[in-house]
Design a protein around this nucleic acid. Sequence first.
DNA 1: CTGAAAGCGCTTACAG
DNA 2: CTGAAAGCGCTTACAG
Lengths: 343, 343
Amino acid sequence: MARQRSRPVTLTDVARRAGVSVATASKALNARDEVAPETRRRVLQAADDLAFQPNVLARGLLTGRTRTIGLLTDELAGRFSIPILLGVEDALASGQMSVLLCDARGDAIRRQHYIRTLLARQVDGFVVLGDSNDLRPSLTRQIPVPVVYVYGESDDPRDLSVLADDEHGARLATEHLVSLGRRQIAHITGPETYRAARDRAATFRKVLTDAGLPVAGGDPLFGEWSQRWGRHAARTLLTAHPGIDAVFCGNDQIATGVANTVREMGRHVPDDISIVGYDNWHEFASDCQPPLTTVDLNLQQLGETAVHHLFAALDGQPASGVIRQPCRLVVRDSTGPPATPHP
Amino acid sequence: MARQRSRPVTLTDVARRAGVSVATASKALNARDEVAPETRRRVLQAADDLAFQPNVLARGLLTGRTRTIGLLTDELAGRFSIPILLGVEDALASGQMSVLLCDARGDAIRRQHYIRTLLARQVDGFVVLGDSNDLRPSLTRQIPVPVVYVYGESDDPRDLSVLADDEHGARLATEHLVSLGRRQIAHITGPETYRAARDRAATFRKVLTDAGLPVAGGDPLFGEWSQRWGRHAARTLLTAHPGIDAVFCGNDQIATGVANTVREMGRHVPDDISIVGYDNWHEFASDCQPPLTTVDLNLQQLGETAVHHLFAALDGQPASGVIRQPCRLVVRDSTGPPATPHP
DNA sequence: CTGAAAGCGCTTACAG
DNA sequence: CTGAAAGCGCTTACAG
């Protein structure tokens, strides 16, 4: 670890070795066309020999562009952030850009501090990653460079927000169950304080109504995002309404709890009761007994989409409003046609 | 989103407003003591009025320090990376440093590319975050600034690696079960190809031997890191060895699978069979039925420790070798004294 | 096609 | 205590 910090190779070194001026060396390396082919060759060779890496700071100072963006997150610990972050990082790297990571941990003071820090570092733009898909206060006014919001929606419609399309996801899940021939479909989901929970429940209700079907159990059951709640709600619901033949769950943890309880109550998944989860959280969905049919939010792609819009804004083509990205139904073994087909 | 990129405030602006030279303004802002108090006051006031943020690029160009470190990860998607990353980010922020995030996704080409990129960006140091605690090839030779390895150990003993102490974790878990009075303790864990699995199994065996107890079931059972494996192994094991009164599991998913199977087989957790998990993965450990006693690796602190060592290296106090950070046993409801005390 | 010069925003000896 | 000057590494008109 204690290696000497050797003096880095500069453009001056390259120019000297190639026998040209720094100006010419610069042009040759930047593929400008005012350089003789032979000269360019010598410069490139010299740069290669010396393993020259242009100092990005110096370039940034001149051009005003750092090819760096600030990624401002609220709660990286939440499991939605990681795939999005990976998508962001991947898309940025493809565009030769780097990402400075700042997690505000939901603390406003800290967030302000980070915004200042990132601006002092001359980032070219921001990606603001929400920790839930509720509305969040716009930060754009304080930020003089392009900003894209992802996963969490900005409350200012002049901003651009790139969101997962929860209505689409809920529609995919519900229509899947309906098309399998399920007729008494219940919905067990997370806290009603979450916009995601409300939006999905509303779509669930609408799809059933349009299909002429009731909401089994009377109303969607709001609770928490846990297996525990899934177990509890399933037991209550199935005891009171033994005719239920499918449950659409607000996430894969709830679905896992429901599946375990259904089995414990001596009913079969998927024949007696089909179950759809939400999130495609691998450790839960794939490892459930049986593996869960679930909705994948395409989170990584969400991050990529956000970055592409940021690139557009950096190129002077800013957008605004809300972009909703479709979800994807992943069919596994927790859903199937009813054991006894309906008449 | 389409705000104009207004010309940023520079030190020159501040100096002009305060009626001093840029040199004096610089000294005043950097709290050097060769400035008259009244002058300093005026400069600070002017900077405040203009919301001046020094351009970090310019400063970096001069000082050769960017107050930025490169965080090189192999597989951010793995769940161990996030807490460590949060610890790293937090500790860096406390030291007024920022982190450039680069996830190589286990691809060597990509990793090389990122190393070059980060060096071109003049990072002051690297944190290399391994995706498993197996040995990994040292990157230090290619990197002219301090490097600290975290979670995954470098194969070069001259490097510094900051690791979770798996032997300690396994010891905590096993001794806990022994001290509760458990006498037939089995171990169900992940693939033997994982160093973590081997190390923990070895310690498990050693602690039992030292206590004069057998390894129940004959040998630790290596399999995979899933609930599925936990279910399967538990059924096999408990059928063949009905006297088993405790299971130490290689992670919380396995433990969850084991707990579910034990219940399905009509045995009680923790009275008949106590279960210890590993990782303290909240969504599994807290939400298991019953909640799991488990080992917490203190991952966030691992990241913080790594950064503190990086700071030391940046201050000219590099270390080398391996630092193992203790684990912590989190006791919940899946462990307790035997229903029928041993004689 | 090539190179000397200016300049990005800042810091730091150095002279006054 | 203050400020003019040099310089970090690079790019870009501009002159030759």
